[in-house]
Design a protein around this nucleic acid. Structure first.
Lengths: 205, 205, 205, 205
DNA sequence: TATGAATGAGTATTCATTCAT
DNA sequence: GATGAATGAATACTCATTCAT
């Protein structure tokens, strides 16, 4: 009810719609009605559809934002001078995103593949770069090509989702990182000191 | 209209329905109509609903069978004298099931949790036993409790599904086993010879 | 409520739907809801859509029947030995159809052009034959080609519709026939005796 | 925001709305949204609705103008000293209007009947006068009363629309005039010389 | 007991109209 | 007066489930 000019209000509506959609996504995945979204966001159906012409468009918008955020994470990993550390930063960053997004992330992962496949593909190719560096630096076990590593990354996301549901985000991201790092890094690359505060405790030797 | 051995016919109908449903599940997940199932199974809607009062009941039946099969796998793992080998047998068996069931497994995994939670829980507790033996035998890294290990097993299933979609079942199960074993088994437990034919090639240390 | 086997019932439903649709079309043109049609036909939405997958499909079905009927009329006109009489038979028959169909005919005319254009075109080409015979027989004024005559026929249908609304079907078809015949037939072709019972009174030479 | 001569601006807005509406009517009949009209007219929705409280009001306004123009045509016909020539002038004038308005005319004809029936009726009564003169002058075939002649005029409008769609405005108006004149004028009234430049060519003998 | 036609509540989307700025 | 964002009732179509034959 407190408005500061039409534009601000419209922007707020759009934001409220996106927030409500993210909530709904986290709570119930994809299975809710546009009507309920409108009610939660406290806008009419018309406003909802003025902002997003289709339920899929709405998913595309949210998935797109998530993808953009992921690209930021990937770039940060690439900026890390040490290749192995870059891989760890990637994991850290992606799981942090997943922790924030909760269950919505899984639904959006599917949506991204379905509604904005090019962007998803481009993100995948960017992840390749992180692993390429690690392979070139010799910190990856032999026999694993880059595309496979990137796809393992995606698989690990699912692994994370399952564990988060069952044991909460902390344990999930710890295990996912631990498992992947043990699974792909070359034995000696793993001997170095722990990268982050809550990273080591679980892997007693 | 004139039938001999009504019972046998009814049993065949039920079997045809289950087969058709498994096919559909593998092809399109959960997104198909009961009408199409009836057509594939070559029965009327009435017969379909006489056998399964609900779409969920149908899922429950299929998921239940899968769970029963999983219990068989688990029991085989428990029958293995060597604890570490038991864990490997478990993975082997479960991924073999997943390979056979294809994409249907994911849908059924969700269904099982939703519609027959007790059976799913009981299977989970049975998996615990496999890992309990491994923990007791000291072949598991420290800091990992049994419940967590069992849930990692479930997460690994998702990991497997993703990889199977992207790289086929062979690579998926190899990577999933590799990753888990590297991630959870104690370093020296892993030093032993490869358990199966297509297990080693990928992990050139 | 009185049923003689499923098939008969289903056929009756389809017929009731078509009847109700024709009614609605006559009363309100195209502007009514599928729900109302279902109610009038006393069937559920599902039955309605089982029979006609789309509102347009329904129109296509009704328009198709009308077109088929029209083809019958055209063929009867072609069967008439005398060419001029053939033209009159054509008018007679088409207006009789329009009289029966009432206002629905206009809506269906548009629908036919939109949803079954090939059938409509084929009917048009068949009407050409009637006029071709008349031209060949020299009973048509000079300067009028066959395609134009056929299209005049269509225009005359609209003329008829308007007049029917304002003066009733009797006057409408009399005027339409009178006008067309005076407009296109060669003067001497018109000198012959009246073709039908209610044809002459209006044209006192 | 700073405007000089508010009135002129407001008048211009209204005119732009009417022009855009006429365009839209000609292009797509009645099937367009108020939003699109506002965009074409380059005004906001508020301005649009301030000028025309309803889509129907807008139609009424345009149809009203057309009716006024028609009245002008009718009056010109009445001003013609020769009664038969008056009828021809009427046709000429009305078809010229239809040619100018294109497809919009049909939509507006319907709108006029629906939203400003009194004006439409009054125009009809004025057309009666043209035909009354012709009847009185004995240039109309026997058996045709004035009201019927006026309604034939309306039917002929529809005839014209159909032919215009199929053969263009030239042929359409020629045929429509030809047909009506042959259909209603007394034989000897037709013997007189052609009234206008493009009137005769089609009726060879 | 098998059949498949019938049911109807449910869902995404549109568009004339309103009203806060 | 002008603007255009907001409204929400309306509408075509779907699909799990029922039930007359």
């Amino acid at each position: 009810m407190a408005r500061i000019g039409e534009r601000a209000d419209a922007r707020a509506n759009r934001a409220r719609i996106l927030d409500a959609a993210r909530q709904l996504l986290a709570e119930r995945g994809i299975e809710w009605e546009m009507r309920e979204l409108a009610e939660r966001a406290d806008v009419g159906m018309g406003t909802l559809y003025r902002n997003f012409a289709t339920k899929d468009d709405l998913f595309a918008a949210i998935a797109g934002e998530l993808l953009a955020e992921a690209v930021g994470v990937i770039d940060a990993a690439l900026a890390e001078p040490d290749a192995a550390m870059g891989v760890e930063r990637l994991l850290e960053g992606l799981f942090a995103m997943a922790e924030k997004g909760g269950a919505a992330v899984e639904a959006l992962h599917r949506s991204a593949i379905a509604v904005i496949p090019e962007q998803f593909e481009s993100m995948s190719r960017r992840i390749d770069l992180v692993f390429q560096r690690a392979v070139d630096a010799g910190v990856i076990r032999g026999g694993l090509d880059v595309a496979l590593l990137t796809d393992c990354m995606k698989g690990l996301f699912s692994f994370y989702q399952v564990l988060r549901e069952l044991h909460g985000p902390e344990v999930a991201s710890r295990m996912a990182r631990e498992v992947l790092l043990n699974g792909i890094l070359a034995p000696d690359a793993r001997a170095r000191p722990a990268p982050g505060p809550h990273a080591r405790p679980m892997a007693t030797r």
